[in-house]
Every structure is written in structure tokens, then in C-alpha cells.
Amino acid sequence: MKRFRNILVVSNPEGISEALIARAAWLAQANGAKLTLLDVSETDQSDLLRLLSTLSGTRAQEVNEDLLAARKDQLEQVARTLRDKGADVSTKLARGIGFIEVIRHVLIHGNDLVLKAADQTPAWSVLGGPDLHLLRKCPCPVWILNSMAEPSSRRIMAAVDPDPEDATRDALNNKVMQLATSLAVQDDAHVDVLNAWYLYDEHLLRSTRVHTPPEEVEALLLRTKQDSHGRLTALTDRYAEFADRMRVMHVKGIAADVIAQHAHEQRVDTLVMGTLGRTGLSGMFIGNTADTILSRVTCSVLAVKPEGFISPVTTEELDRP
């Protein structure tokens, strides 16, 4: 996985977990990468600000400074642990809205990966709002670790949708395959390469309203399946060296449903996927399929963007002091 050289590791309010530290240390060693540990003090903590305002004299300022110092000490403790493992590490404190400050740092400092533990709540089951914002809007790959993540993966899923005639999609699928197979080798894990296919409007073709003979529908189904399988084979043949740890799956169904169901049933712990939408446009949002998947899975997610992605945060945030 010699791809990431400038990695941003984002702290949660609870700090940086052992699993996140272990993954960051491995990435730094595997890539010869430098690490930046970032902790964002949220500016919209209205309850805390209201409580501090009730303190007499200069106590509010003193408590606030103590809190910032404590956060800095937490970062430095993690940094020392990573430096002891041979990593090149720096730390940074920021104030603002968490996901915006992360993206702002990426845009200014050119980070090529964001690594973060999933936001945790008492009822945590799927990715929360701030994590989804990062996955949707951050221009570089984002790796969100499940709250129960182990330091290494056991079962990985690469969700692909090959189309050799679409250069952007083809490049994105190859990124997904490269990352998933590299991670599988590093973690000695298995990877399921999953591609969903279906015949558009099959239910209408079979309805009495359209009057399509059953044999024509079956012929269309077969052609759709064969064409899709051919594109999948053309992609996975490039990664034949990983055949001993790779299972290729061609499943009929809507992609979001198939991927979410497979992740749940097979207990996938890391999903590697592309988030493909319109490119070259400020304010771009990821495709509906990717958005639906991200709102339904509970595993760790490593999401990569297509070339030409422009974050909607760019113009509205870079001019801020």
C-alpha cells in the first residue's frame, strides 16, 4: 500500500483509540508516511460555554485554557507512542466544526488520507453525521474505523462497478482493488470482490402493461449478466496474483442492497469502495448508491474519490483566518 505519504489522523472527543494508533503506525511504516494528529475543539459546544460563563472572575478563561492544554497533552502522549514505533509525527489543535476543520487541513496541507475512528453514541449502529460529511466532502480517501475495529482486518469487501469504457470509473475501480488487495496482504485477510448487476426495469418488462414475451426478457437478462460479468472478469484478471485470498462475487440485485446485505451476513469488517458522482464541479456530492451504502453499513469504511473531485468546502472555508 505504497500510496499514502501524508496522513491525517483525527482524534474523537474520547481521544485516539488503540486500534487507530495501531493502524496509523502500520500505515506510516508501510508507506514511509508522515502523520499529523489533529484534535478539533468544537466551537458550538453551547452547553459547555454556558456553564463556563457562570464562573466568577477569570475562571472561565483559566478552565478553557486547561481544557486545551489537556487536549494537547493527550495528542502528545499518542504522538510519543507512535514516535517510539518509528513514525514521523506532528500534532495540531484546531477550533471550529470538526469535519470542516479536517477538510480545511487536507486542502491546505495536501493530506492524501484521513484516518479516523467512527463517532460513538450510546445507540451507535451506523456511521454518524460528521463521519458521513467527511466521506461525502473530503477530497482525499477517508478511512473510518468501526468503533469495535481490531488493529487488523479479517474479512474485506471491495465493492466495484467496472466499466472499461468510462475512464473515470475504471480508474476508481482500480484504486479500490489496489487498496483492498494491499490491505488483505498486510492483514493476512480474505477479500470479497463484489459486483452487483440487474436488468433495468425488469419488473416492468415482465408486466402485462409492456407485454414483453418471457423469452425476450430472459434473453435480455442473460445478455445483461454476461456483459456485466465480462467487465468484472476484465477487472479482476489484473489482480490474479491475489487469487488465493480473493473471492469474486457477481450478484444480481440493486448495488446498495446487495453490498449492505453481504457486509452484514458475512461480517465484513472493512469495506473498500469508490464514491463516484459528477467530477470537476464544486459542490459535488457522491452518487446515490454510495450514499445509501454508507448510511446502512456498520463496518469500517475506506472510501476513495474519483480524479477531479472538488470538495464543496473549498471556496467557502479557505478564506477563513
Results as ranks from 00 to 15, higher is better:
residue 130 P to K: 03
residue 153 S to P: 04
residue 187 D to T: 11
residue 135 L to S: 11
residue 279 T to H: 02
residue 266 Q to C: 10
residue 87 A to Y: 01
residue 165 E to M: 11
residue 279 T to I: 13
residue 60 A to Y: 04
residue 53 S to P: 13
residue 164 P to K: 13
residue 122 P to T: 01
residue 73 D to F: 12
residue 110 G to P: 10
residue 77 Q to T: 14
residue 259 I to Y: 05
residue 201 D to E: 09
residue 49 L to V: 09
residue 58 T to W: 08
residue 25 A to F: 08
residue 195 N to A: 10
residue 278 R to I: 11
residue 176 V to P: 00
residue 204 L to C: 09
residue 121 T to G: 02
residue 26 W to I: 11
residue 162 P to S: 13
residue 9 V to I: 13
residue 90 S to A: 08
residue 315 T to C: 06
residue 93 L to D: 04
residue 180 A to P: 00
residue 263 A to D: 12
residue 48 L to I: 03
residue 209 R to Q: 13
residue 107 L to R: 01
residue 174 N to F: 02
residue 83 R to S: 15
residue 294 L to K: 01
residue 89 V to P: 14
residue 194 L to P: 03
residue 84 D to P: 05
residue 246 M to H: 12
residue 25 A to G: 08
residue 185 V to W: 00
residue 232 L to R: 15
residue 147 S to D: 06
residue 81 T to D: 14
residue 198 Y to Q: 05
residue 27 L to N: 07
residue 204 L to T: 14
residue 33 A to E: 02
residue 239 Y to I: 15
residue 40 V to P: 02
residue 249 M to S: 07
residue 275 T to A: 15
residue 95 R to F: 07
residue 151 P to M: 11
residue 67 L to I: 04
residue 224 T to R: 09
residue 104 R to K: 12
residue 263 A to H: 04
residue 119 D to P: 09
residue 288 N to S: 01
residue 207 S to E: 07
residue 92 K to Y: 06
residue 192 D to R: 03
residue 88 D to K: 14
residue 101 E to H: 02
residue 246 M to S: 11
residue 123 A to W: 08
residue 76 E to W: 00
residue 70 A to V: 14
residue 113 L to F: 03
residue 263 A to L: 10
residue 93 L to Y: 09
residue 25 A to H: 04
residue 271 L to M: 14
residue 96 G to K: 00
residue 246 M to V: 10
residue 262 H to Y: 10
residue 18 E to V: 15
residue 197 W to L: 02
residue 4 F to D: 07
residue 82 L to R: 05
residue 305 K to G: 03
residue 17 S to N: 13
residue 28 A to R: 15
residue 64 N to A: 12
residue 52 L to I: 12
residue 60 A to W: 12
residue 296 R to T: 08
residue 131 D to A: 01
residue 65 E to P: 01
residue 278 R to K: 14
residue 12 N to S: 09
residue 199 L to D: 03
residue 38 L to F: 05
residue 33 A to K: 03
residue 52 L to Y: 00
residue 66 D to I: 12
residue 77 Q to E: 09
residue 68 L to E: 14
residue 301 V to P: 01
residue 187 D to L: 02
residue 168 T to S: 08
residue 54 T to M: 11
residue 134 L to H: 02
residue 213 P to K: 11
residue 236 T to P: 04
residue 309 F to S: 06
residue 293 I to N: 00
residue 308 G to V: 10
residue 245 R to N: 08
residue 255 A to G: 04
residue 277 G to C: 11
residue 148 M to P: 10
residue 118 A to P: 07
residue 114 V to W: 01
residue 240 A to S: 12
residue 279 T to K: 01
residue 118 A to Y: 04
